[in-house]
């Protein structure tokens, strides 16, 4: 019981929850505005992680700067994917209707390519580096600097995104596209620009998450897939395309996972995550935080 009440456990839950929320945020933005099921989302996390690793190993550039570099690199990738593949598909109504289903296969292909390119270039040896790993103790809670940084950055990006969506005009346009694409066009939202910037932004967020992950975990070419799965679980729990709820769901999943493992054993991790997932699908398939308003 003591461990359950400890700040230590809460800190661990928040660190993983904020990371889940961040990874899911990018996926949710891309799904919400473009209706693309990005199976390669976790591989962007991998790219971010490698960016951080190579920058610190080769040039001694700290991860805090790699955050920006990884974001830029992944945003560029988003631009390439949109301009090269999806702009034309989304412009044609006949193709646009099938693009949601087709995107799953397309992104699966992109995922395989990215993983194997990474394996080819960097070998499948797991990598890691040390950064801010001294233990700080505050109020009886021991934490490492890198976990604290991860929590801070992930939370800041999530809340920054929420504020942007609520108060910036572009964010309003983005929410309009998520709710009703055609109506957004009718009121004069520049659909093409919203879609392009959202895919860049969504990819960039995944890159940022990758840098954060790399500070505490092993980096391999195949590390991305579990993040893809977690991101899908989170956005389905929160409600597809519902950005704020997705962030909340990310934190919830972190709490359920950490406290669940503390109560049972680490062997139950998958059961806890998928149990929550299946439970939500059974009880509220539209997502736990989605208000049932549809006209």
């Amino acid at each position: 019981m003591d461990t359950l009440m400890s700040g230590q456990l809460l800190f661990a839950a928040l660190v993983s929850g904020s990371l889940y929320a961040l990874v899911a945020l990018g996926l949710n933005l891309v799904y919400g505005t473009l209706r693309l099921l990005n199976i390669a989302h976790g591989d962007l996390v991998m790219i971010g992680a490698y960016t951080a690793f190579w920058m610190i190993s080769l040039f001694a550039i700290p991860p805090i700067i790699s955050l920006v570099l990884a974001a830029a690199l992944c945003a560029l990738l988003g631009w390439a994917v949109y301009a090269g593949l999806f702009r034309r598909m989304l412009a044609k109504p006949e193709l646009a209707k099938r693009v949601e289903a087709n995107s799953l296969i397309l992104f699966y292909g992109i995922s395989v390519i990215l993983q194997n390119l990474a394996a080819l270039a960097f070998t499948s040896t797991s990598r890691g580096y040390q950064y801010l790993d001294t233990v700080i103790t505050w109020q009886g809670i021991s934490m490492t600097g890198n976990r604290l940084l991860s929590l801070g950055v992930a939370t800041a990006v999530c809340f920054g995104a929420l504020l942007f969506l609520r108060f910036h005009l572009f964010g309003w346009g983005l929410r309009a596209v998520i709710q009703r694409r055609e109506a957004a066009q009718v009121v004069g939202v520049n659909l093409n620009r919203v879609q392009l910037l959202t895919i860049c932004g969504g990819f960039a967020v995944a890159g940022v998450a990758g840098v954060l992950v790399s500070m505490t975990e092993q980096i391999t070419p195949f590390m991305g897939f579990p993040f893809t799965i977690v991101a899908f679980v989170v956005i389905i729990i929160g409600g597809l395309g519902n950005i704020g709820a997705g962030i909340l769901a990310g934190f919830c999943l972190g709490l359920v996972e950490t406290y669940g493992i503390a109560l049972t054993s680490p062997g139950y991790r998958s059961i806890l995550i998928y149990g929550l997932f299946v439970g939500v699908l059974l009880v509220r398939p539209e997502g736990i935080f989605t208000k049932a308003v549809r006209s």
Binding site: W172, Q179, A183, A184, V186, V187, K291, S295
Partner: peptide, 26 residues
């Protein structure tokens, strides 16, 4: 040039005022 579409297509999850403000996004 502005279309009031068939089926109205309001933004269902937004308030009346937010819908109106979105109308002035151009």
């Amino acid at each position: 040039l502005c279309l009031i579409p068939e089926g109205r297509l309001v933004f269902p999850g937004m308030t009346v005022e937010q819908n109106l403000r979105l109308g002035a996004i151009a």
